[in-house]
Computed example of a mutant assay.
Amino acid sequence: MTPKKIEGILAAVPTPLTADGKALDLENIKRQTERYIKGGIHGIVTTGTTGEFPALSVEEQKQVIKAYINAAEGRITVVSGIGCTSTEMAIEMVQFAENSGADAVMVVPPYYDPLAWKELYQFYEDVCGSINIPLIYYNLPHATGVKLDANQLRELGKIKNFDYLKDTSGNAKELTDLLTNPVEGLTAFCGWDTLTFFALAGGAEAIVWGVASIVPRECVDLWDAFQAKDLDKARRLWKFLWEVSDFMEQGSYPVGIKTGHEIICESVGPVRKPNLPLSEEAYAKITTILAKRVYK
Rank of each mutant, 00 (worst) to 15 (best):
T15F: 08
T15W: 07
K22C: 04
D25Q: 01
Q32E: 13
T33S: 10
Y36H: 12
I37A: 00
I41V: 15
V45R: 00
T46M: 04
F53C: 02
P54C: 05
A71F: 08
A71D: 08
E73Q: 15
G74H: 01
V79E: 10
C84K: 15
I91F: 06
M93H: 10
V94N: 08
F96P: 05
G101P: 08
Q122F: 01
F123Y: 14
S130Y: 14
I131F: 10
I136L: 15
I136H: 10
A143Y: 10
G145P: 05
G145C: 04
D149A: 07
L156H: 00
F162R: 10
F162S: 07
F162K: 08
K166R: 04
A188F: 03
F189W: 03
C190M: 13
W192T: 13
F198A: 05
F198E: 07
L200Q: 05
A201R: 14
G210V: 08
R217H: 15
E218A: 13
V220Q: 12
V220D: 09
W223T: 04
D224F: 00
R236G: 02
R236D: 15
W238E: 14
E243D: 15
V244G: 06
S252D: 13
K258P: 01
V268S: 14
P274M: 08
L278Y: 13
L278G: 05
E280K: 15
K285L: 13
L290H: 07
